[in-house]
Design a protein around this nucleic acid. Structure first.
Length: 304
DNA sequence: CACTGTCAAGAAGCC
DNA sequence: GGCTTCTTGACAGTG
């Protein structure tokens, strides 16, 4: 079991998603931003290893305007060595990597231009995993997309688009159950049609489900991951911020709820991404809990 | 230097 | 039809 947090480290004084305005785009600024972002990413990964955190979601903003037509800078070749070095470190330390393209990636959109831009974004993020030399256990996680008032055709459009995706995207793509539109059950239907793994989100499942108990839901999702091709199931973990709108993520790990959740695993191996506001602070607390329960190694061996 | 409106991109819910 | 939220930081212009 690996524990991680998304994109941002609040302990270090650097960012891996420095950007600038489209209006002020230049090749120089792009090169400068990517160089700084990759340097910071290396620092974050090293920090994580020391803390025993071996799952990380890399920010989509690592290359500003990564899939935008304005960006014609050959960043893939200019930074090939840096990506390769990061990938080697990731493999040597047994780190799991994911990306989560944001809400603008909608594969089942009714607008073909949006679908094309979405695919371009997935190709951009997938190409970084290829540059790092990572296998297909490194994933790109997205949601099914929009509902547009018709669940059936929305799901059918996703399936049709998925089948046409470039191989380098398709082999890494996974879908996540969301909290309002597409439930675990909907995702399972997509899986049955095309074999795509389901990244399970416990909190979304609490918000939107069809009565499946947590332990059963976890097993249904886990069965969609092909062990050799996809690796251990990835999942997002969070809980409700009390007194806020339903679906609002908690600001810090609620340890008792986390312990209760772990009882539902019943021996199932998962890599858990904590979608919690205070990032690595909660992730480190989760590590403490898991060490106490002997679900992760008690001590970290740093290989240099 | 501090403040703040705004930023590439989508969709849904509410009024 | 317009505004807000998801989710969030930080860019960049202003005072």
């Amino acid at each position: 079991m690996k524990i991680g947090y998304p994109c941002v480290n609040e302990s270090l004084d650097c960012t891996s998603s420095a950007t600038f305005r489209l209006a002020s785009y230049s090749a120089e600024r792009l090169e400068l931003a990517v160089a700084g972002n990759l340097l910071c990413l290396q620092r974050i990964l090293a920090y994580n290893v020391v803390q025993g955190l071996r799952f990380f979601r890399i920010s989509s903003g690592i290359v500003p305007f990564g899939s935008h037509p304005i960006n014609t800078y050959p960043w893939q070749t200019r930074f090939a060595a840096e990506f390769r070095a990061i990938g080697s470190y990731v493999q040597a330390q047994g780190i799991r990597i994911s990306f989560h393209p944001d809400q603008f990636v909608v594969l089942n959109s009714l607008n073909p231009d949006i679908v094309q831009r979405s695919i371009a974004e997935l190709e951009y993020q997938g190409s970084m995993l290829d540059l790092m030399g990572l296998d297909t256990t490194a994933k790109l996680q997205i949601h099914v997309g929009g509902l547009y008032g018709d669940r059936e055709s929305a799901i059918e459009r996703f399936i049709a688009t998925y089948r046409e995706l470039p191989e380098m995207v398709r082999r890494r793509l996974v879908i996540e159950n969301d909290d309002r539109l597409f439930s675990l059950r909907d995702c399972l239907r997509v899986h049955e049609a095309v074999g795509i793994p389901i990244l399970f989100d416990n909190f979304h499942h609490e918000c939107l489900n069809h009565g499946e108990p947590m332990a059963e839901a976890l097993r249904l999702a886990a069965a969609t991951w092909h062990p050799e091709r996809d690796g251990v199931m990835m999942m997002d973990y969070s809980s409700q911020q009390l007194g806020e709108r339903k679906g609002k993520h908690t600001t810090t790990l609620e340890e008792s709820l986390f312990r209760e959740f772990l009882t539902h695993l019943r021996g199932l191996d998962v890599d858990i991404m904590l979608e919690i506001k205070d990032k690595e602070a909660s992730a480190r607390r989760a590590i403490s809990v898991l060490r106490e329960l002997q679900l992760v190694a008690a001590e970290v061996v740093v290989i240099s």
